[in-house]
Amino acid sequence: MPETSIVHSFFLIFTGAAIVASFALYARQPLILAYIIIGAIVGPFGLDYVSDARMLSEIAEIGIIFLLFLLGLDMQPKSLGAMFGKASFVAIVSSVAFAGLGYIVSIQFGFTQLEALIIGACMVFSSTIIGIKLLPTTVLHHRHTGELVVALLLIQDLIAILVLLLIGSFTSSEDANFEILELGTTLLMLPFVALACYLIVRFIILPLFTKFDRFHEYMFLLSIGWCLGVAEASEKLGLSLEIGAFIAGISLATSPISQYIAVNLKPLRDFFLVLFFFSLGANFNHALLESIWIPTLILGIVMIAFKPWCFSFLLQKTGEPKEGATEVGVRLGQISEFSLMIAFLAFSQQLISNEASHLIQATAILTFIINSYMVIFRYPSPIAVSDKLRRD
């Protein structure tokens, strides 16, 4: 089928998503599910009405960038630093546990040692999008629970970047090796980028905001330019677009303009996040389900059951109250969009088979759906099915 124009693709995506979302709301289902379903229906492996899902995935990544930028705007550096001490212990110990469990389950279904290691690594991470998207603004800004969720997700994101760098430097030849020096250089770039952002914001960005604060469109433009500029620079220096966007946001967090920017960029973020979840459904090959549905079901259920318990147990060991620790555990009880990136890169490097790649994707989608239900039926969220729990 010939490729459709981007305007026609957007028509199919957003009109289709609106229709499916209407049914989802009547059935009291999460809207994320509607976006994934419309992607599966009209994408390349469905009716093939939108064939360039790769392009849409790249556009959707902008949504993740804006999400991390807005997240940075909401975080005060001092409170974030205080959270990292406790979160580091929980994140590292839980990562080892999740990776080990994923490895054990994968080996039982006949995957190779390397495939099982990569599948295990993909089980480590929780979704930044779902974890933050399902947090009400009041919880994200003003409560200890929100700060803890964010700190854990950010440490996981740093681990995910390490995994991506390791896989990217691993060759499928007999002389496979890891470029440790490149990894060390990349990690050293993190404080360099943070310091550079602090200085630029203090001496250039904030004075510009102050001088031209009457021109709202200029403030909007400068905000987007700063976010995307730092994201792009970070990627060139070996970090990721997402980490760069977060640093860009947190560099503005202490300024009085931060909340104005956050409010004005939320609709733009939501627009691109619809595309992200659409592309997730569109890129999944349904034909492979027959060969992977059993390991997907078992791996997904194991992780959904184990992740919340493990997070809760470790957080209680650090002194967190049981109720708060359990809520954090449930909110982080899914697989991450970083897992999808790792699966794509590992498959492109010929390190894992197509079946292993789709196992990771299917498990991620399964955990996205089930965990979203667990959150919206139990805790406050912007898309809760109960009026009592709905918080924006």
Rank of each mutant, 00 (worst) to 15 (best):
S172M: 06
T210K: 06
L158M: 14
L190V: 12
G146F: 05
I159V: 13
P207Q: 00
C227F: 00
E174P: 15
F220R: 11
S173K: 10
L221D: 06
L222D: 04
V201N: 06
L166F: 10
Y198A: 06
L164N: 10
S173I: 07
H144Y: 03
A196L: 11
S223C: 11
D213G: 07
F178T: 11
E217W: 06
L187M: 13
A151T: 13
F209W: 08
D175V: 05
L165A: 14
T186R: 07
K211H: 07
F209H: 10
G184L: 08
V201L: 02
L166E: 08
S223E: 02
S169K: 01
W226C: 07
L164M: 11
E147W: 01
I159Q: 10
A196R: 01
V163P: 11
L148I: 09
E174V: 04
T210A: 02
L166A: 14
M219G: 15
A160P: 12
L165S: 13
A160V: 08
L190W: 08
A196P: 15
Y198Q: 00
F170T: 13
L183H: 13
I180N: 06
F178P: 10
H142F: 01
G146D: 05
I155Y: 11
V230G: 04
I224K: 09
C197H: 03
K211V: 01
L162N: 14
I155A: 14
V149L: 04
G229S: 09
A151C: 12
G225M: 01
F192Q: 00
S173Y: 07
G225Q: 00
D213N: 14
I204Y: 02
F170A: 11
R214A: 12
L181P: 03
E182I: 04
N177K: 08
L152V: 13
L166I: 14
V193A: 00
I205G: 09
L221V: 12
L183T: 12
L195A: 01
I205K: 03
F203T: 00
R214Q: 09
A194L: 02
K211R: 07
N177I: 04
V149W: 01
M189E: 05
R214T: 15
L195E: 00
L222G: 05
L206K: 09
F178D: 08
L181G: 02
K211P: 02
L195N: 00
V150Q: 10
L188N: 08
I167C: 13
A194Y: 02
L165G: 15
M189D: 07
I167T: 09
C227I: 03
L195D: 01
H142I: 04
V149H: 06
F220D: 10
E147V: 05
G168L: 03
C197F: 04
